[in-house]
Design a protein around this nucleic acid. Structure first.
Lengths: 253, 253
DNA sequence: TCATGTGAATCTATTCACAGCC
DNA sequence: GGCTGTGAATAGATTCACATGA
C-alpha cells in the first residue's frame, strides 16, 4: 500500500469533469486486473495502454481526484483501486431493480458484472403475470403492481429499464415517483424525467447506426482513392431495405 | 415530400462532427415516429423536444448536413428522414454477425431494431458445439470454426461481440482479419484493433458505475444541505460489499 | 533520473443571438 | 411574424510540454 496518507482533500470531488467520470470505471477495471496479478505499482503509460487511452489524459483525470501517484515511480495499484472505488461510490452497496424480464432483462439479471463492485440485484419486475414467481438468475420475478413497495422496501435508488419502448416512460414515471433517482434505460426511447434524476441510455440501434455512418465513409473514401463516384452508394449490394417503422421493442416484457 | 430539390452538396458529408453523428439516429427515430403519425412538417423546437435535445443544437446539427429546412415553416418530415438515413448509410443493407450466443447474444438476435433500418443479422456464431445448428430467433447458430468463411461469404463488415471478456480480443482479431471493419463490443474489455477499424462499446457495468457516482454526489449534497458529514458514506445501508474480481463474463458463449 | 502533476495551447462541442428568408 | 441557418461567444475536453519532486 506504500503511501499511507491521511488525505481527504477538503473540498473533495468538486467538479470532476463528466468525461473523467466516464473513464474512471475503465481505469478501475484495468487496475483490478493488475491487482489480481499482484502487480504493486503501475505507470501512467502502462495503465493508459491497458485502459485504451493516452497517458496525458489519464494523468489529467487522476489529477482531479488528488495527487495519488509518486513522481519517478507511478501509482500504487491497491491504493488507486480504493480511491477510485470510493470516488465512484462503490464502497457502498447499491440495490438495483430490473424492470422488464424478457430476453434482455434476463441477460442483465445473469450478468456477472452486477454482483461485483457494489451492485446487487434487489428485485426483478415484469408486467406479465405468467412470469411472476418464476426465478430468473435465482431471483423470483415480481409483478409490476408491487413496484412501488419493492422500491421502498429495498431502498432502491437505481433502476434498469429493459421493457419495450412503449412501456418505458410509464415504468420510468413510476420508478421516479417511488424514489428512484438514477435510471439505466435499454428501451429505445427518450425518457422524460424531472430535474435531479439521472438517465443513461444504452441503445443498440443507435450504436449500429453510428458504425454504419463510418462504414459508409470508409467505402466512399476507398472509391474516391480509386477515382470518380462523388456522392452515391458505393457498395455493389446497395439495396432499398424493407419499409418497417422504427421504435422496435427490445423484447416482450 | 414538399421541397423537391436536386441537392447533392458537392463535397458532401465532409467533417460532420462526431457528436452530431451520434445524435442523428435520435433525430431519425423521432422523425420516424412523426412520419408514422403522418405529420408533414416539424419545427426545430418540436423535433428537439421529441429527441431530448435543445433546438439550437439540433439546428446546428442539421446545418452540417445541408439546408434542409424552410424558414418560417420548419422541416419536411419525409424529406429529412430520407436525408438522415442516407447520411447514416441506412439506405443500403448492412449484414451483421453476432458472435457469442449466450443470454445477451440471443437477446440481441431477437432484438427488433436489428431487422429495421438497414441491418440484417447474417449469421449467429458461437464456440459451443452444442449450440451449432440450433435456431435462435429463427437463425441457426454456426460454429466459430467457420467464422472467416461466414464473414467472407456474406460480405460482412460489421460484427457484434457478445462473448465473455476472455474470448473477446481473440474473436475481434479473427473478425478483423476476415475483413470486418466495425465492431460493436458488449464484452467488458478494451479491444485492440488496427487503424481503420471502428469499435464502439456497450458496457453495463460502466454505465452503472457512472450512475453510482452521481447518486453518491446527490446523497452527499443532501447531507451537506443538512450540515456536517463532510466526506463519508451517507446512506444508512453503507456496507463493504464482498470482494470479487471484476472482469465479469457477460454470459457463457 | 524518471514519471507525475499541471499550466497553457489547442481542439471540439454547445449555446447565444440575430440576420436572412419564406 | 416566425423559424431556419449560422457567425461569434462560451464552455468543455484533450493534448502539449515542462517544472516539480520523489
Amino acid at each position: 500500500m506504500a503511501t499511507g496518507r491521511t488525505h481527504r482533500p477538503a473540498t473533495r470531488s468538486r467538479g470532476i469533469p463528466e468525461a473523467t467520470v466516464a473513464r474512471l470505471p475503465l481505469y478501475l477495471r484495468a487496475l483490478t486486473a493488475l491487482s489480481e496479478r499482484s502487480v504493486p505499482t503501475v505507470s501512467s503509460e502502462e495503465l493508459a495502454a491497458a485502459a485504451g487511452v493516452n497517458s496525458a489524459k489519464l494523468r489529467k483525470d487522476f489529477s482531479y481526484l488528488g495527487s495519488y501517484g509518486t513522481r519517478g515511480v507511478g501509482y500504487d495499484v491497491e491504493y488507486l483501486v480504493y480511491q477510485i472505488s470510493r470516488e465512484l461510490g462503490l464502497t457502498q452497496d447499491w440495490p438495483v431493480v430490473i424492470v422488464g424480464i424478457g430476453n434482455l432483462g434476463a441477460a442483465l439479471a445473469n450478468y456477472g458484472g452486477f454482483a461485483s463492485r457494489g451492485f446487487r440485484v434487489a428485485a426483478l419486475i415484469d408486467a406479465d403475470p405468467a412470469l411472476t414467481g418464476k426465478p430468473v438468475a435465482g431471483i423470483p420475478v415480481q409483478h409490476t403492481d408491487d413496484l412501488e413497495k419493492i422500491i421502498k422496501d429495498n431502498g432502491v435508488s437505481i433502476g434498469v429499464i429493459a421493457t419495450p419502448a412503449g412501456a418505458a416512460q410509464q415504468v420510468c414515471d413510476r420508478l421516479v415517483a417511488a424514489g428512484v433517482t438514477s435510471i439505466l434505460n435499454f428501451a429505445p426511447t427518450v425518457l422524460n424525467v424531472p430535474d435531479g434524476v439521472d438517465v443513461r441510455k444504452v441503445d443498440l440501434s443507435i450504436e449500429l447506426q453510428i458504425l454504419a455512418f463510418h462504414e459508409q465513409r470508409k467505402a466512399g473514401e476507398e472509391a474516391a482513392a480509386e477515382g470518380a463516384v462523388p456522392a452515391a452508394a458505393t457498395r455493389p449490394d446497395s439495396a432499398d431495405q424493407g419499409p418497417d417503422g422504427d421504435v422496435p421493442a427490445v423484447m416482450p416484457a
